[in-house]
Structure formats: C-alpha cells, structure tokens
Amino acid sequence: MMQATDKQENPTRSGLVTAPELKRHGFFRNVFSGIKSLLEGMKVTFHYLSHPSTVVTQQYPENRATLKMMERYRALLTMIHDENGLHKCTGCQICHDNCPNASINVVTRSNPVSGKKELDRYIWRMDSCTFCNLCVQVCPFGVLKMDGSFEGAVYDRRLFVFTLNHYAGPAAGLLAKVADPEERKKMIEPRDRYSGPVPLNGQELAGVKALKKAESGCCGGSGGCCSDSQGSQGSKEMK
C-alpha cells in the first residue's frame, strides 16, 4: 500500500511511464487481475448467450402489430387536429421561415367571410426534410408534432410532398368564437393530402385515389405545379 501511495504522489518523476509488470510483486498481480477481469467480462456475455430473453432488438416485420415507437422518435411531421378535426395553425409562417432547407411551404389566404388572413395549405416536403424538429420547436401555438409512423417508403417520389392540414380556415380558437354553425361551415374549406400545388396534384397512383376535378383545379393562386396538362391527364385516368 505504501508503494501505491508513493506512486500517486510522484507519478512520473523521471518522465517515464511506469509499467506495473516491472514493479516488484506487480508482475503476477497484474497478470492475475487481468485474467480475473477478463473472466468477469466473459461471465456477463455468457449470461446474454444463455438467456435468449435478454434480446433487446425489435423483430420488426414480425412484431408490427404490437410495435410501439418511442415517444421522441421523429419520423413524420404532422399537424395536430383535435377531436372536432380542428387545428390551431394561424398561418403565421414562422416555421416556413425557420426551416433550414425550405421543406415547409405555408400558403395563406384571406377568409371568404371575415377577410382575415389564415392558413390555406401547409405543404411539407418529406423528401428534403432532415427531421431537425426546428419547426416543432419554433411554433408558438404548438400546432406541429413529429409522429412515430416511420414506414414512409413509397414508389413515387411525388408522394413525398403533401398537405398537412385537413381544412383551410381559421384556427380552432377563432372558430370557437363563431356561434352560428352555418357561418362556420362557410369559413372552412376541406383540404386533401395531395391536392393543390403539390407535384402529385390530385392524380391517381397505386394506393392514392384521384381527387375530384373541382378540388384538383384549386391551386391557391401559386400555380406552377398545377398545370392544365397534368390536370387533364389526371381526369383522363379517372374516366
């Protein structure tokens, strides 16, 4: 013990690294403590081998029915809609401005009844998104969240660009102040996942139903993606 304390006080007096196996009694102590610690490690790993119940990996396609993703897993940006199907987005575009690679495009409109500015379409580009979570963090109204549904693979990359909100219209709080249900209905317009200025624009694909002609025609004024030729092609496929 005395030797050990001496060494601690004066670790490298000569500037050389001291090797424990060169010390008196150090050689065999070192060998045996080394073997002992190795055996300890082997005991741990053998326990894993002999107890298949210690397997921690998810057997994914097999356990699909019971699979529960972690709460903080970031796979799919979603807009939170309450039980009445209303969201809290005001169309303030803070997320739009903060997105580091312009994966979010918030299109606004003025309400046909009140004339106030509100959300028309919340378009998200999953293909360029890095899932950095900045949009969720900057949103002052807690509208967005990252969902755990990770099975996002598709056969057509146009499917990666879609609308998140289910309706165009004022946020839930504003809508609650409108007493008349008829008035409410006038303020709201339903929005589809693949309608408007998204590459797919209401066309039919395997697994995606074509939208009605009236909806696919509506571009929210930004044009571009929603050309006439695409629209007519889509309607031809619909028959």
Partner: peptide, 9 residues
C-alpha cells in the same frame, strides 16, 4: 453466437 452475445438474434 455473436448475435446472442450482444443481445440480438
């Protein structure tokens, strides 16, 4: 064996 030593299959 490696799998089971590392808690996988």
């Amino acid at each position: 064996i490696a799998g089971h030593f590392q808690c996988r299959l």
